[in-house]
Every structure is written in structure tokens, then in C-alpha cells.
Design a protein around this nucleic acid. Structure first.
Ligand SMILES: [Mn+2]
Ligand SMILES: [Mn+2]
Ligand SMILES: [Zn+2]
Ligand SMILES: [Zn+2]
Lengths: 146, 146
DNA sequence: CCAATATCAGTAATCATTCCTATTATTAGT
DNA sequence: ACTAATAATAGGAATGATTACTGATATTGG
């Protein structure tokens, strides 16, 4: 959950971290790969995956794994929930902080030891809502954008 | 979310539904496939997937998709959350009902239209806790059992 | 009974992610 | 600086759950 061994900052690792921190979106590994390749054309997708795992293990970035969607990464490490648009897959941040009393609410309702939870809001983003009112009926195109 | 067209109950569909409703666990498609094959040896895995999708679309069963794990199915359609054991992947039911005030709590914190949420508790199941105290240190074997 | 339609079994394809390996870079010790 | 040991990378193959395709079989409605 927090930093481990002092990470050797290779060129690849530095650039991947920089590019992820540049964006406010929650890009997939191959979106990051595309960005990083502009600066390091010979980097491999495997290195991107390996490095993202490593940075996440060090607590320098976060992994977002929502059900049924591709893995996404987050340059913001401060704890916060996300809301995902069911039409376009876009993921937005909610304000920092955990839902108060959530785990406590369930502790006496299970024989498991509760150690955490995952919570994701679902909805329609402003752009897709706008498309709707304009009758653009684009259907569902999940996770298809940056 | 609720029933649509009146579903033609083929033998395959009936048996798949029966087998899923028999168990209290949350089996993967191939676990259901294994069970169903005892009664219908020639059924194909594709039919199992297709039928489970169909039954879920009709609201007769539920799909559970947790991040980074295989898809699981639930014969109980009454709304309820789950808690997943981080060591063995087992999924248990929490009592029926939604966390009160959850979506309301976030409505004024986002410009998305909130239409739902996913919530999964994480923890250690009684069996894995027991293994621990017995020093059986089995490591992590996610989603490897029924 | 027949033609149109739906479903199925069997198998191939998909595709995000992980694994493997030969090469290249870095480090620590002299 | 030189060198052996160690770590990291590029490129490509493998994995594995799910989906798509296809020709055969079943069902329906007239
Ligand atoms: Mn975020
Ligand atoms: Mn359940
Ligand atoms: Zn959207
Ligand atoms: Zn367990």
C-alpha cells in the first residue's frame, strides 16, 4: 500500500510516470503506451505494463480495475472514488475521501473480516447527456475514449 | 433490469437455470458448465455463456463482475451486495438491501447523472482466517474455488 | 407438411494481459 | 576504468476468458 524498496528510476519509468501525471483522465495501458512512444519510440507495451504495476506497488500511482472494463491507471494517489459513464466509459473523479461509516455498516452483517471495499458510481457524463438531448442516439460505446 | 419477451424455455436453458439455483455459491460459467454436463453431456460452453447472458437480461439471474476476477453468476435476484475473500476468491452474500443514502451522498459532488453504483466489500473468509491461525500460509489463490 | 425462424454444438477468433528470452544497461567490487 | 554480477528492456509468443461464426438440428405458425 505504501512505498517499498527505493525504485531505480530508469528513463522508461520516469517518462511513463510523467505522462500519466500529465493527464486528468484515467488512461488504459495502451493509451499510455501511445503517449510514451512519442518520446520513446522503441519502448515496448510489456515495459509499460510492467512499469505501471511496479509504480502502483510502490504507491506512486493507482490501478483502477472496474468490472468488465479494461484496466485503467490514475496518477492521483490520494484516496477517492470514481464515477463511470455507462455510455462512453469515461471515468471522472469524485472529491477525495471515503464514504463515512460504510465498512462499519457491514461489519456485523458478515462472518468475513472486512478489510476494504470497492465503490464505483455509475451514470451518464455531461457529454453523453448532451448527445441524448440532441437525439444523437450513439448507443453504447464503452471504454472507447481516452 | 426486469423481464422482457417471454423466454422460450429450452431444455438447456431450464437445466442451466436449475443448476445455478441449486447452489448458494456464485459459480463461474465453466463451473456451471461442469455441473450441467453431468445431466447434458453434449452441451457446449458457448451455450452456457449465451444462456447465462440471456437469463440475466431477462432478470432471472444476476451477473457478478468484480474487477480482475472471472465473471460469476448468482441465482438470487433480490438486490444484495457481496463480500469477496482476497485470499481464495470466495464470494458471500450480504443481507438484502442497499446502503441507505449512498447515491444521494454523491449526487451533488459530480456533474454526471447518477444512475447506480457497484459496491463490493473485501475481506478474509472464515476458512482462510482459520488457515492463517494454523500457520498454513497458503498465499494468494484467487478465484480458484467453487 | 413445409418454410421461416430460433437454437444449438463445435470450433475458431478475439484481445487484454502476462510470460519468455536474448540483448542492453547498471551496479559493485577491484 | 575494467569486469563480473545483477537488473531492466524490447520484441514477440503464450495465455485464458469470453465472443463470434457456421453448419446442423429443433421449433413454430400457417
Ligand atoms: Mn481518479
Ligand atoms: Mn449473491
Ligand atoms: Zn459519456
Ligand atoms: Zn477465503
Amino acid at each position: 500500500m505504501s512505498a517499498q524498496s527505493p525504485l531505480h528510476m530508469t528513463e522508461q519509468r520516469r517518462v511513463i510516470l510523467e505522462e500519466l501525471r500529465k493527464v486528468r483522465s484515467h488512461p488504459t495501458a495502451d493509451k499510455i503506451y501511445t503517449r510514451v512512444r512519442r518520446r520513446m519510440p522503441r519502448i515496448s507495451l510489456g515495459t509499460v505494463y510492467r512499469t505501471l504495476d511496479l509504480l502502483a506497488a510502490q504507491g506512486m500511482i493507482r490501478k483502477i480495475e472496474s468490472a468488465g472494463t479494461r484496466r485503467r491507471f490514475d496518477g492521483t494517489v490520494e484516496p477517492h472514488y470514481h464515477i463511470r459513464c455507462l455510455e462512453c466509459g469515461r471515468i471522472a473523479d469524485l472529491p477525495p475521501g471515503e464514504m463515512p461509516g460504510l465498512e462499519a455498516h457491514f461489519r456485523n452483517q458478515t462472518d468475513y473480516d472486512v478489510v476494504g471495499h470497492t465503490l464505483e458510481l455509475l451514470g451518464t457524463c455531461p457529454a453523453c447527456r448532451k448527445d441524448r438531448t440532441e437525439g444523437k442516439d450513439v448507443g453504447v460505446r464503452p471504454a472507447s475514449e481516452q
